[in-house]
Amino acid sequence: MKINIFKYAAPATFYPLAGKMIPWFMWAAALLGIAGLYYSFFEAPLADYQQGQSYKIMFIHVPTAWMSMFIYVVMAMWAASGLIWNTRLSAMMAKSLAPTGALFAFLALVTGAVWGKPTWGTWWVWDARLTSELILFFLYIGFIALGAAIEDPRRAAKATGLLALVGIVNVPIIYFSVIWWSTLHQPPSLKLNESTMGVEMLISILLMTLCFWSYTIGVALSRVRTEILQRESKTDWVAALVQEGEKK
């Protein structure tokens, strides 16, 4: 079993495998997205009794916020495995996940602000969740900036991996401190409450989350493929690949 895993961890075997997997994930994302949108607009209740129809923003906001957090954790796990076993592929996975994670953090922030305008009457409230989402966005930006600044790809992979690990150790502490801070300064009473969440709403949020998951996997795999192509451009198998591609 172990041999198998490491066989697929070799870039030359992973490259075609990823190429076959990407369309599957993208189609799954499209289908799940359609199902999720159908559920959120036709099956979920028309309006929330407190927020009116603006609560439909939740179907984007909650999944993107979840995704931004999941992706950071997954990224740190890849980074850790890259540092421990020194596998090139894990570091590439970590690097490929970061831009999409940052994108979801950004979307969660913007949709949170747009939701806040009709609900709280203001675009931005320093509530614990929005604030920690903002900090998470900063962490992503730091990760991407460090990776972009270091020219040697091997050093970049290791340095960003270590940064991701330091970040993941700090995330719970930051989250705790932000909650502490916001209770000290008395947050607004209306929260993004999940207690009133109905079954239909939960289903659509889950469907949207799964859609974003498949999308993320597809995009990350595609980035890894490009990265492999770039780094292995001097190897024989890439040369063979290019010649095959040019015959067609």
């Binding site: 962490l139 730091g142 900036a145 970040g167 930051i174 705790f176 401190s177 932000v178």
Partner: peptide
């Protein structure tokens, strides 16, 4: 960019 986000808990407390 790397360190300031990590300083936040110290700032808060």
């Amino acid at each position: 960019l790397l360190i300031l986000p990590l300083y936040i808990p110290v700032l808060v407390f």
